[in-house]
């Protein structure tokens, strides 16, 4: 095991597989608030398995803090599994919407080029306003704000981050293990001990 985990803070993507349970969002959020850690982004969605929810949480912290938080989350009864990954280990996207006045944008901007350069598309075009949408990393969605600002950007909103773990083979097999009363020796729950500083698992 590496003696020293990196001590600098960086962005971590925490992926949590859970049961569908009222109050679980609160239970998970409290683990952060109790430690005065700000959640930069939080997304809850269905997962590849029906009935299993997937949380994507982004925080800026040291690996040591993140690994402890991950264990505290995994300790919650309805939580099946927690992973945490740096940005390098995930494919991630955020979606953003931009509302601009149609008259100005149509008159002053080279719209077709603007859309192409920013990987954006028009979602709605009305006489009074137009809504663009783009998906990408933070820099990309931020950049389009800068681009649209001179054209009288009226409203901007960005979604939470969603992330797919590059090294994951999904949760189906693990869930089947969890459903057994006595999971096998190769189960899931010993990943922590196999590579204790990389992934924590139960």
């Amino acid at each position: 095991m590496p003696e020293q985990a990196p001590i600098e803070k960086q962005e971590y993507n925490i992926t949590v597989y859970t049961e569908n349970h009222v109050g679980l969002l609160n239970r998970i959020a409290m683990i952060f608030t109790r430690r005065k850690i700000n959640i930069d982004s939080l997304n809850v969605s269905p997962s590849e398995i029906e009935g299993i929810h997937r949380f994507n949480i982004v925080i800026n912290e040291t690996e040591e803090v993140v690994s402890k938080i991950a264990r505290q989350i995994e300790k919650q009864v309805e939580v099946l599994k927690v992973y945490f990954n740096t940005n390098e280990d995930v494919i991630w996207q955020e979606m953003a919407l931009y509302k601009v006045p149609t008259d100005i944008i149509a008159e002053k901007a080279k719209v077709e080029r603007l859309l192409r350069e920013n990987g954006a598309r028009a979602v709605v075009i009305r006489k009074d306003y137009t809504v663009f949408e783009t998906t990408g990393h933070r820099e990309e969605t931020d950049n389009l704000i800068k681009v649209l600002q001179p054209f009288g950007l009226i409203e901007f909103v960005r979604s939470a981050r969603i992330a797919i773990i590059k090294g994951s083979d999904g949760f189906n097999r693990k869930l089947r293990e969890f459903e057994r009363a006595e999971p096998g020796q190769d189960a899931i729950e010993n990943e922590f001990l196999n590579s204790r500083d990389n992934v924590f698992s139960m």
Binding site: E19, E78, V79, F178, A181
Partner: peptide, 17 residues
């Protein structure tokens, strides 16, 4: 109740440790 799939009260003991 003796089993909840998202709850593992008792880990498997690892002999090597």
């Amino acid at each position: 109740c003796d089993h909840i799939r998202s709850y593992r009260p008792k880990p498997i003991v690892r002999k090597e440790y």
